[in-house]
Design a protein around this nucleic acid. Structure first.
Length: 470
DNA sequence: TCAACTCGCACCTTTGAACAGG
DNA sequence: ACCTGTTCAAAGGTGCGAGTTG
């Protein structure tokens, strides 16, 4: 039940001038976040799902995740304010399908839906607040409705994603642009978005562990529904998973150790050993368990430089910078993993900030991000992962000086204020309601990226994270 | 034909209002 | 008046299975 730990690898203080914190709480070191530490709660549960191949249901109206993202934070400055965000990045550039008992590649990924970032409703809050108890993203919802107006995170079914947690020291969303982002990922949280569960083992895990699905448990008192089932869990009725309830992490059912992605080159699971995520992971060969940390610093580069600047991307052996020069030009890091399917890693993805309609009533918690010019979907297909092997972004080793698990980068606005913000300029009509705590015009102020996307409809959206490409 | 998707259902937990008691 | 605990109904989160779609 040990949480997965991740720590920043280095001092995150950006090597450039940063406006002082508005609140003055931070002082000169207000963006010194090198001691921040994030751990994933319920890691055993995540691991149990991950071993089987986590699936998350997505629906038009939005579906919560289960397990949901819950983290513990430490090392924050108690009186400095922080903002917590979550977004989803593609794991690869493929669409997948479930074939009998395993996942297979089923073609190229579909074009990226608008990338949204979920803003924790407590944001901004002082470090003491974030550290006093676990931070839950329970209400984060996933949807496959690209026209969703509730602020849910939009994903494609049958595509694989993993959540990224962003921590920003900022007094408010306006100052986010000047702040240093620390991005954490936990390999065990990767999942396949589906509209209906494919792997019955996942269904069983969900039923066994999600309290809302209690009515489907075999041992439950519910007889009515099961009466409708000619045979509950037809193919797995013999695979009693009760042990998972008690100790999912040590579930002994060998079937649960077998990765549905093994055929795709994932490393074989090994028993024992500490929490090295990918040890059990179907995606182990691609993702660096230790989660790459990247420290990107604008280094005083001007906005346009940032726009076209290199993206440092860790590779299995070292940092291998590759360029992300915009739509259609990024190299596509493909799988370093070995299977013939050649699953590539995913490419950097730079989300845009969405424009938001002011009339919307629901209180969204997701920032609308624009197309992901560097993501696997927009770039990958053109780059045809194929044989040409770029270092897999997810299968990277940390630089010696780095600790795994965190990627830090300053939020930076490549656009100067006079730069065009798309066809509608800076005040494009809002498409989505403003996110929680998000000032109405934030979306037009926090402009960080200028890649164009083929989808003109998304032009009103601008990236929030200029350097979330990785 | 079939995989992917949608929808309504029963069952369940969570939430919050209303109320009672200290 | 205030606080705490209990009750209960409504809201909303689940997977299932039938129907729909492309």
């Amino acid at each position: 039940d040990r949480p997965l730990d991740m720590q920043p690898i280095r001092d995150l203080k950006p090597n450039f001038s940063v406006p002082p914190s508005a609140s003055g709480t931070g002082g000169p070191d207000s963006y010194h976040q090198g001691n921040a530490r994030m751990t994933l709660e319920d890691s055993h549960l995540w691991k149990a799902f991950h071993e089987v191949g986590t699936e998350m249901i997505i629906t038009k109206q939005g579906r919560r995740m289960f397990p949901h993202c819950k983290i513990n934070l430490s090392g924050l400055l108690p009186y400095a304010k922080y903002i917590m965000l979550v977004d989803m990045v593609p794991v690869d550039a493929f669409r997948h399908k479930w074939n009998k008992d395993k996942w297979e590649v089923a073609g190229k990924a579909e074009p990226q839906p608008p990338c949204r970032t979920y803003l924790h409703p407590d944001s901004p809050a002082p470090g003491s607040h974030w550290m006093k108890q676990s931070v839950s993203f329970l209400k984060l919802k996933l949807t496959n409705n690209t026209l969703d107006q509730h602020g849910h995170i939009i994903l494609h079914s049958m595509h694989r994603y993993h959540p990224r947690f962003h921590m920003v020291q900022a007094d408010d969303l306006f100052s986010v642009r000047w702040s240093v982002f620390q991005t954490f990922t936990f390999p065990d949280t990767a999942f396949t978005a589906v509209t209906a569960y494919q792997n019955t083992q996942i269904t069983k895990l969900k039923i066994d562990h999600n309290p809302f699905a209690k009515g489907f448990r075999d041992e439950g008192t519910n007889t009515k529904r099961r009466a409708h089932r000619s045979q509950p869990y037809p193919e797995k009725v013999g695979k009693k998973m009760n042990s998972m309830d008690k100790d999912p992490e040590h579930g002994s059912n060998p079937d649960f150790r077998r990765s549905p992605y093994e055929h795709m080159g994932a490393p074989k699971s090994e028993e024992g050993g500490p929490v090295k995520e990918e040890r059990y992971s179907p995606w182990g060969s691609e993702q660096d368990p230790s989660l790459s940390i990247r420290t990107d610093s604008p280094l005083g580069a001007d906005a346009r430089d940032m726009y076209n600047s290199e993206q440092l991307v860790p590779t299995p052996t070292s940092y291998h910078p590759y360029r992300c020069h915009g739509y259609g030009k990024s190299p596509s890091p493909s799988s370093s993993g070995g299977s013939g399917s050649g699953r590539p890693g995913y490419e950097p993805r730079i989300p845009d900030v969405a424009t938001v309609p002011e009339h919307e009533t629901p209180k969204p918690h997701a920032l609308e991000m624009g197309p992901s010019p560097c993501g696997p979907s927009p770039c990958g297909p053109q780059l045809a992962p194929g044989p040409q092997e770029y270092p897999g972004v997810l299968n990277m080793a940390m630089p010696p000086a780095s600790k795994p698990g965190v990627l830090s980068h300053p939020l930076y606005a490549p656009y100067s204020t006079e730069q065009a913000l798309g066809p509608w300029g800076g005040a494009a009509p809002s498409q989505y309601p403003p996110p929680h705590h998000l000032p109405a015009d934030y979306s037009t102020q926090a402009v960080h990226h200028g890649y164009h996307h083929g989808n003109v409809a998304d032009w009103s959206q601008y990236p929030l994270f200029s350097y979330s490409c990785w």
